[in-house]
């Protein structure tokens, strides 16, 4: 949930303090692809925290482990299936390793976010890239969520929901302080805007 207490002094609306590695990461970020294929949106200001790569890696391992375990168990139990279950096991293990090794860094390269006084933006995905934008005037709730693995790594996810069931802008893998600060600032702006936001 958001951590805003009513007594907090209203801060000027601007992006949260960039951490050193974020600034560094930004300077090496590739320029947006030009030409007819590009979507015409510039890259957003902030990368997620570097530790998010670890978070994605742990999640990828947790997702792949049952699959590999299932295939390996099947191979061990069913002797008759040996001729074709060995290549299957090799293939599954290869895919799992590739997924765990490749996807988290890819995500880190893609994921970006930015807040302005008017709107919240986020890019996410690795195979399918998705830009999401929600104007601050339509925000309904700002939640900060910390799962067990995120807590271990000192990370948090900020979920900004609007009246649309399909419209939440989710900022994953932020540093805890940055997340709290962002949620606090957004909540503050939202409280200043009235209306039922539909």
């Amino acid at each position: 949930m958001n951590r805003l207490s009513p007594g907090v002094e209203p801060a000027p609306v601007q992006p949260p303090p960039a951490r050193p590695e974020q600034v560094e990461a930004r300077s090496v970020a590739p320029a947006p692809a030009e030409g007819a294929r590009s979507i015409g949106l510039r890259s957003l200001r902030h990368r997620v925290d570097r530790r998010a790569v670890w978070w994605w890696t742990i999640r990828a391992v947790l997702a792949m482990a049952p699959l590999v375990a299932a295939v390996a168990t099947g191979r061990a139990v069913l002797d008759a299936a040996r001729p074709w279950s060995t290549p299957l096991l090799v293939a599954v293990v290869a895919i799992a390793i590739a997924y765990v090794a490749v996807v988290p860094p890819l995500r880190y390269a893609v994921h970006r976010w930015e807040t302005t006084p008017e709107a919240v933006y986020a890019v996410s995905g690795w195979f399918v890239r998705e830009w999401r934008a929600a104007p601050v005037s339509r925000i309904q709730t700002v939640d900060t969520v910390r799962g067990p693995v995120q807590r271990l790594l000192g990370l948090a996810t900020v979920t900004v929901t609007t009246a649309s069931a399909h419209g939440p802008v989710v900022l994953v893998g932020l540093d805890l302080e940055v997340a709290d600060e962002t949620a606090r600032r957004l909540t503050e702006i939202v409280q200043r805007t009235r209306g039922d936001a539909t």
Binding site: R37, V128, E130, A133, A134, A163, H166, G167
Partner: peptide, 23 residues
């Protein structure tokens, strides 16, 4: 009340994107 722009790797190669208005 918001936008979602999706682009898969294949859509990117074809110069396409899916634009969704949220409401």
């Amino acid at each position: 009340i918001g936008w979602r722009v999706r682009q898969s790797v294949l859509q990117r190669r074809l110069g396409l994107a899916t634009l969704a208005a949220t409401t």
